[in-house]
Each structure stands twice: as C-alpha cells, then as structure tokens.
C-alpha cells in the first residue's frame, strides 16, 4: 500500500491540496514583493532629508586667493573662502541672525550679510551688527594629485 493511496481521515490534507496552498502563498508573496515597492514609488512616504557629511566644492585652482564662493552643502548653502595666502576655510553660509545667505567681502576680508549688515571675521566670529553667534564651521581638505586637488568640505 503506497503512501498516495493511503485513505484520508478527518483533519488530514491531500498532498495535492497542500501543494496548491504552498504555491498560492508563494504566488501572493511574490506578487506582494513586486507590488509593495510599486505602491511606495507612487505614494512615497514623507522622508527626512539625509544628512550631508561632505561635498566636493571643485578644483582648488578654480578658486582664486581673496575670494569666496557659495557652494551647495546638501540643500543648504556653505561659503568656501580662499584666503589671501591661499588657504581654504568653509562655514555655513546661513547668517545666524535671520538665516540670510552671507557673502565674502574681499576689500575688508570679512564675511558679510547684506540683509542687516552683519559682519563676521575670517574665523567665522560675529564681529559687528546683529548676528548673535559665530557661523558654523566646516572642515576643508584637499584631495588628489598636486595641481589637481579637489576641495572637500565636510562636517567637523
């Protein structure tokens, strides 16, 4: 008497029925694994912005001494300053007073906010006007072969 011919009693499942159930579950699971990402693509969840830890501002040679440039650090502005001696410094470009974007003033070698005439020195310290505290500082490193270095701005 083979196993397949074994009579089924109360509470027992036929082999064919069992396989159908397993295949059905497999089919539903597979369909869900396709459809769920599709659903999330069409209806994306509200996400918090990923924190940016570093950006490449460009080639060092692109920034002339005694100049400043606004670069994108995530979705916020940063100011990269090349000092008269060629050194780089970077700070958040968001004025600590009312969030305006600051700029570099080459004639006085200061960081200036045009909105309310706030001034910061090249160490990022608030020295005049309404800004209540210094600018947040970033680290600046040069990466690459001499003459081809990239300026990398990163969180300290």
């Amino acid at each position: 008497m083979s196993a397949s011919d074994r009579p089924s009693g109360p509470g027992t499942i036929q082999r064919r029925s069992f396989l159908d159930i397993v295949l059905g579950l497999g089919f539903v699971s597979t369909a869900a694994s396709f459809l769920y990402p599709l659903w999330r693509y069409l209806n994306p969840p509200a996400t918090v912005e990923a924190a940016t830890n570093s950006v490449i501002a460009g080639k060092a040679a692109e920034f002339r001494p005694n100049s400043g440039a606004i670069v994108k650090f995530g979705s916020k502005p940063a100011i990269l300053i090349r000092m008269p001696d060629g050194q780089f410094r970077a700070y958040s470009a968001i004025c600590t007073h009312l969030d305006c974007t600051v700029q570099y003033k080459g004639d006085t070698s200061q960081i200036w906010c045009a909105c309310h005439n706030g001034l910061y020195d090249l160490a990022g310290n608030n020295v005049s006007g309404p800004p209540p505290r210094p600018l947040d500082a970033f680290a600046v490193n040069l990466r690459g072969e001499p003459g081809q270095e990239e300026v990398v701005i990163s969180r300290t």
Binding site: S75, C100, T101, A114, C115
Partner: peptide
C-alpha cells in the same frame, strides 16, 4: 531649494 532660500533673503531685505 537654495533658490527658494534666496527668495526668502529678498523677503527679509
């Protein structure tokens, strides 16, 4: 996003 921030600067100015 940076341009919107710049527009907000104009509001402050």
């Amino acid at each position: 996003a940076l341009t919107v921030r710049e527009a907000a600067n104009h509001l402050t100015v």
